[in-house]
C-alpha cells in the first residue's frame, strides 16, 4: 500500500451519510462495502452511489478500497466494471483464489488502458475468509503484483470451520499466525479482523496489541470510534521498533 495502513474503516456503500463522514475519523483507509452491508435488492443502487461518491467527495487524505461481492455471484464483476473507471485505490476480494486474482488483474489492465490510467494503479486486497482461502493464502497473495495487502476476516473464517468467536481470539491464533507470516514473507501489508464489540475500548486495545505482536500491520474498524485506538497502538509499536533495546 502507498502508506502504512494502520486502520481500515468499513462503511456501507449504500449509506450516503457514512460515505461522507468516514474521513472525519481519520482512518488511513476506508473500505466501502458493496457486499455484506448492502442487501441484494440494493446492489445496483449502491454500486452507482459509490461510483458517484468517488467522483464527487474529497477522499484525498484516505485510501479508498471497495469491497466487492464474491466473483462467483452475479454482482462481483459488475462491481469491478462500474467502479474501476473512477479509480479506487484497491478492490477487496472476498473468497479470493489465485485464479480470481489473476483474472481480475487482467480485467483491470484492460480498464486501465481504456481509461488512460497507469498500469497496475488499481491494487487488489484478497480477503482470507474461509478454510480453503487460509490454506492457500501463499498462492493467492503471490498471484499478482497488484496485491499489496491481505485482510483476515475471522468472523466468516471461524464460521466456516464451525468455531465460535471469542473476545480473546484463541480460536483464530493459527489463522492470524499463518496469514501474518505469509504476508510478511511476501513483503505486503496484513490487516487484522475487526474487534466486534464497538463499546469495549479496552478490549479493542488488547486485541489490537495482540494482532500487532503477531505481525499484523493494521486492523479493521467497524465503527469510527475504533479508529483512534487502532492508530495509537500501531504508532506506539512503530516508535518501539525505532528504538530497539540493547541486551547484554
Amino acid at each position: 500500500m502507498q502508506k502504512n495502513a494502520r486502520s481500515m474503516y468499513f462503511v456501507s456503500g449504500n449509506e450516503p451519510k457514512m460515505l461522507q463522514n468516514a474521513p472525519v475519523f481519520d482512518p488511513d483507509s476506508i473500505v466501502i462495502d458493496l457486499a455484506r452491508r448492502v442487501p441484494a435488492t440494493e446492489k445496483d443502487s449502491a454500486r452507482i452511489l459509490v461510483k458517484e461518491a468517488l467522483r464527487f467527495l474529497d477522499y484525498s487524505n484516505v485510501e479508498v478500497i471497495v469491497r466487492i461481492n464474491p466473483l462467483s455471484s452475479e454482482y462481483g464483476l459488475k462491481d469491478v466494471k462500474t467502479i474501476a473507471p473512477v479509480k479506487p485505490y484497491a478492490f477487496m476480494i472476498p473468497k479470493a483464489r489465485a485464479e480470481d486474482i489473476q483474472a481480475l488483474a487482467n480485467l483491470l489492465s484492460e480498464i486501465e488502458k481504456a481509461q488512460g490510467f497507469e498500469e497496475e494503479s488499481i491494487k487488489l486486497i484478497p480477503m482470507i475468509d474461509n478454510i480453503v482461502g487460509l490454506e492457500s493464502v501463499h498462492s493467492t497473495i503471490n498471484a499478482s503484483s497488484r496485491v499489496t495487502a491481505a485482510f483476515l476476516n475471522a468472523e466468516d473464517l471461524a464460521a466456516d470451520y464451525g468455531s465460535k468467536r471469542t473476545k480473546e481470539g484463541d480460536e483464530i491464533l493459527y489463522a492470524r499466525s499463518k496469514v501474518s507470516m505469509a504476508c510478511r514473507a511476501a513483503g505486503i501489508e496484513v490487516i487484522d479482523t475487526p474487534y466486534m464489540d464497538i463499546n469495549d475500548s479496552e478490549g479493542l486495545e488488547m486485541d489490537t496489541e495482540k494482532a500487532n505482536l503477531l505481525g499484523f500491520t493494521g486492523k479493521a474498524a467497524i465503527d469510527g470510534r475504533q479508529v483512534e485506538t487502532i492508530n495509537i497502538v500501531f504508532d506506539a509499536s512503530l516508535k518501539q521498533a525505532a528504538f530497539p533495546q540493547t541486551y547484554i
Binding site: 443502487s45 452507482i48 458517484e52 461518491a53 464527487f56
Partner: peptide, 17 residues
C-alpha cells in the same frame, strides 16, 4: 439533505429500474 452525487446516483438507479 442529499448532496448532488447522491441525487444523481439515486435518480440513475431509479430510472434503470
Amino acid at each position: 439533505g442529499a448532496l448532488d452525487y447522491t441525487i444523481r446516483a439515486r435518480l440513475q438507479a431509479a430510472l434503470e429500474r
